[in-house]
Structure formats: structure tokens, C-alpha cells
């Protein structure tokens, strides 16, 4: 399973970076979204994939009994998903406004700030 996920993560990174290198603004945004998905999946994979009990202390016990699943990576991923959701929404709005003011979604047209 790790191997499959590793290939998926690698594929997402490759696709994301390829999209970032295109000239279109929309593809740029898709590339950024791919990168953040790849990072989330990477955390998921790096934190071990195992079939274990949920991390809930059984009634009457004082501590967790191994093996239990590590809940922290999922908390990290959840936080990262929420952040990337907000940031992507902002980037979409920014891209739309840029398209309106530049009149094109070609990044090569946006060289007004270079000197």
C-alpha cells in the first residue's frame, strides 16, 4: 500500500510542478492545489499505514493498548486541508481579478512589474 501511495504522491508532485510551469493562470492554480494535496497525502503515508484500533482508551483502562492508530497525522492533515481550502479560494478570487484587469490569463502578459 505504501508503494502505491508513494507513486500517487510522486505523480501528484510531478503533475503539480508541470502545471505550475504552464503559462495559463488557471493551470497555475490547479498546480498549486495538486502540490498541497500531494503534501497532505505524503503526511498520511509517512506517518505509517496500519490497521490498528482507534486511539480511544477503553473503559476501565489507564492508557492505550497497542496497536492503536496515531491520530496526530490526521489532525495535521485536517488543519492543512482547511488552510489550503481558504488559500485556494483567495487565489481563485485573485486570479479572477487579475484576469479582469489584465484581460488575459497568459502569465507572459504580466510583466508590468519587472524592470
Amino acid at each position: 500500500m505504501e508503494v502505491v501511495l508513494a507513486i500517487v504522491v510522486g505523480g501528484l508532485y510531478a503533475a503539480g510542478i508541470y502545471m505550475l510551469l504552464r503559462r495559463s493562470l488557471v493551470k497555475l492554480l490547479i498546480g498549486l492545489a495538486f502540490l498541497s494535496h500531494a503534501a497532505n497525502l505524503l503526511i498520511f503515508t509517512a506517518a505509517r499505514l496500519n490497521r490498528a484500533a482507534p486511539p480511544v482508551i477503553a473503559p476501565g483502562e489507564q492508557a492505550l493498548t497497542a496497536p492503536y492508530a496515531d491520530p496526530l497525522p490526521q489532525a495535521l492533515i485536517l488543519t492543512a486541508i482547511v488552510i489550503s481550502f481558504g488559500v485556494t479560494a483567495f487565489a481563485l478570487a485573485l486570479a479572477y481579478r487579475t484576469y479582469r484587469s489584465v484581460g488575459s490569463d497568459d502569465l507572459d502578459e504580466m510583466k508590468g512589474t519587472e524592470g
Binding site: A39, L42, A91, G112, T113
Partner: peptide, 22 residues
């Protein structure tokens, strides 16, 4: 100009964040 500058700033900083997260 702000829009053009912001696109570059946002893209590179989001890439940095993705690298940091990974």
C-alpha cells in the same frame, strides 16, 4: 501592477508552504 505582483508572491509563497508541510 498589484495584481501581477500578488500572483507571483502568492504562487511562490504557497509553493514554499507546500514544501514546508511535506
Amino acid at each position: 501592477a498589484q495584481m501581477e505582483g500578488a500572483i507571483k508572491y502568492v504562487t511562490l509563497n504557497l509553493m514554499a508552504s507546500a514544501i514546508f508541510l511535506a
